[in-house]
């Protein structure tokens, strides 16, 4: 299922009542059944784009969700799993119930749900936390619980919005491996500011800058691109390497 943006814009009012353009008249498509990585400098509109899809913000223009106009699909019927940076867990509920929540909403058979939860949490090394309330967990563990909650659900579209930010490299690699192997054939939008990560996981890399769409690249095309924004993004990796040595 392709996701096509046609002249989509997002405007909002900031605290000073100024009108800010988060997304400025963009038109492009995310490819179905592929890992679509969205990159760009902070504040370029990546999260706003994701939130258009989940129905959290109003947009101008048209978004086609497969064959259908997204606006005509109820948010609950879009079947999207979305992990973002916010605390989207119930703090006074234990890990198991938090992860089981979408499965219960979808009326998945309890034994089947139990098996899925155990399998995913074991993979993410949070199986020993099932009876803990999420308020006792560290940020890294909370991130993994949020990801587990996303993985257990059989969705049409998975959106990972900086979902690996609080994880160490080992866990990041583990999560990315899961996305690559277990979610194969699903449409994935992976938002990150980490270019190394983007290159390692992407089928296609989409670049945004100042609310505008800059282009779509394969990882190799991205590395060879002369686009100024891409060059700036790549320079971050080079700088990181310099810091290391």
């Amino acid at each position: 299922m392709d996701i096509t943006f046609k002249n989509v814009s997002v405007l909002y009012e900031n605290k000073k009542r100024d009108i800010i353009t988060a997304i400025d008249d963009i038109s492009f498509s995310f490819t179905s059944e592929k890992i679509n990585v969205l990159v760009g400098p902070s504040g370029c509109g990546k999260t706003s784009l994701a939130r258009c899809l989940t129905g959290e913000i109003i947009y101008e223009g048209e978004i086609m969700y497969g064959e259908k106009d997204l606006e005509k699909i109820e948010t609950k019927d879009r079947n999207i799993s979305y992990v973002n940076e916010n605390y989207t867990l119930l703090p006074n509920v234990n890990v198991y119930d938090n992860i089981a929540f979408p499965l219960r909403l979808n009326k998945v058979d309890h034994d089947e749900a139990d098996q899925i939860i155990k399998e995913v949490t074991k993979y993410l090394d949070i199986d020993f936390l099932l009876t803990r309330k999420t308020k006792y967990l560290s940020l890294g563990q909370i991130s993994r619980v949020k990801l587990a909650k996303c993985f257990v659900k059989d969705s049409d579209l998975y959106i990972f919005d900086e979902s690996n930010r609080n994880l160490d490299e080992e866990n990041r690699n583990k999560i990315n491996r899961y996305i690559k192997d277990r979610l194969k054939g699903k449409t994935i939008i992976f938002i990150t500011h980490n270019i190394s990560e983007a290159l390692s996981i992407a089928d296609y890399i989409y670049v945004m800058n100042e609310g505008k769409y800059r282009g779509r690249y394969t990882p190799i095309e991205f590395l060879e691109s002369n686009d100024e924004v891409v060059q700036n993004l790549l320079s971050e990796i080079k700088n990181e390497k310099k810091k290391l040595f």
Binding site: N86, F128, L137, S138
Partner: peptide
């Protein structure tokens, strides 16, 4: 949105019974 405090350390095996 209310700011949430997180645990500074991972909930580890050693914290479990």
């Amino acid at each position: 949105m209310r700011k949430r405090n997180y645990s500074n350390v991972d909930y580890s095996y050693s914290s479990l019974p």
